[in-house]
Computed example of a mutant assay.
Amino acid sequence: MNTARGDGRCPNEELAVGWALRALEPDDEHKLRAHLPECPVCQEIVRSTEQVTALLGGSVPQEDPPARLRQKVLGAVARTPQEAYEPLPFRIGSALSESRSAEIVEHPRSRRLPRLAAAAVVLVLAVAVGVLGWQVSNLTGQQQTQSQLLAMLGDPSMHRAVLRASDGQEAAVLLSSPSSAAVVPTGLRPNDAADQIYVVWGLSTGTPVALSSFDVSTVAAELISWNNAAAQHRKFAISLEPGRTLPTKPTDVIADGEVTN
């Protein structure tokens, strides 16, 4: 069974995304079932994918599909043979609970699905959400953000850093790739967007470097300005700053943490 390489990556990362989205064919499912307990890289990918997709699902406006489409989809589901899933002898905790133990969520799987690379999995998920009511030709800003976040999940270069306050409580999760990034404000309070701003700092060089900024108004993920230089950092912090510009040094550090995968 393949495990993490010397560069910290794993050849099974795409399958880990498919596992979290319940979109693997039986052969790949069996392969990853045996692989996950011994691979912290893939465990982190499962946690990250579960966390972001759960947040997206909760923030998408719920709309009823046309009656004819609904009946067509339900009819297709009813005609599709299903097989009982084999209970797993171990568990991987969801990212929503941030369990640090090696657990795996028991997911029922469909009987036969095509082999999916990470990008294809994202496409299938987008189509499924469209069936539930998304109008792709009329995306709102929030829905465009969600689409970009899903694309980020399919990027094998994405890494994840959990940022915690001094008391150990989770404040935010930073998702970072060479060209894009997002902050999931799991424990940050809304700021006054008129005269306050949250700033993301890079801490890998010894001296804090202001990388980007964002506002918090809801628990939804926030896309932030990013580049390859910012993505090279492995340690990060978040501060709450007066004014609306990036300062030269942090004033009030809220949380910090480092890349875990």
Rank of each mutant, 00 (worst) to 15 (best):
R5Q: 12
G6M: 15
G6W: 15
G8D: 03
R9W: 03
C10F: 04
C10Y: 01
P11V: 05
P11W: 05
N12C: 12
E14Y: 00
L15A: 08
W19H: 13
A20V: 03
L21E: 05
R22W: 12
A23V: 03
D27A: 11
L32A: 01
R33D: 13
H35W: 02
H35F: 01
H35T: 02
P37H: 09
P40M: 05
E44T: 12
S48F: 00
T53F: 15
T53Q: 14
T53D: 12
P66C: 07
R68A: 14
L69E: 08
R70V: 07
Q71M: 09
L74A: 15
A76S: 01
A78D: 15
P81M: 10
Q82A: 14
L88E: 09
L88V: 08
L88Y: 13
R91L: 04
R91V: 07
R91K: 11
S94N: 08
A95S: 08
R100E: 15
A102H: 11
E103Y: 07
V105E: 13
E106C: 04
P108K: 12
R109S: 10
R111A: 14
A118R: 01
A119P: 02
A120Q: 12
V121M: 06
V121W: 04
L123I: 09
V124E: 04
V129F: 13
G130Q: 10
V131H: 12
G133N: 03
Q135T: 09
L139W: 01
L139A: 14
S147C: 12
L150I: 00
L150D: 06
A151H: 14
M152H: 07
L153E: 00
L153Y: 02
R160P: 01
A161T: 11
V162W: 08
V162G: 10
A165D: 03
D167V: 04
V173C: 01
L174M: 15
L175W: 13
A181G: 11
A182S: 02
T186H: 03
V199F: 09
V199G: 02
L203M: 13
T205L: 15
P208K: 08
P208N: 10
L211A: 14
S212G: 10
S213I: 05
D215M: 02
D215K: 02
V216M: 06
S217K: 11
V219T: 04
N228E: 09
R234L: 08
R234M: 06
S239Y: 00
E241C: 09
E241H: 06
P247E: 05
K249A: 15
K249W: 13
P250S: 05
P250W: 09
D252I: 05
D256Y: 14
G257A: 02
E258S: 15
V259K: 08
N261H: 11
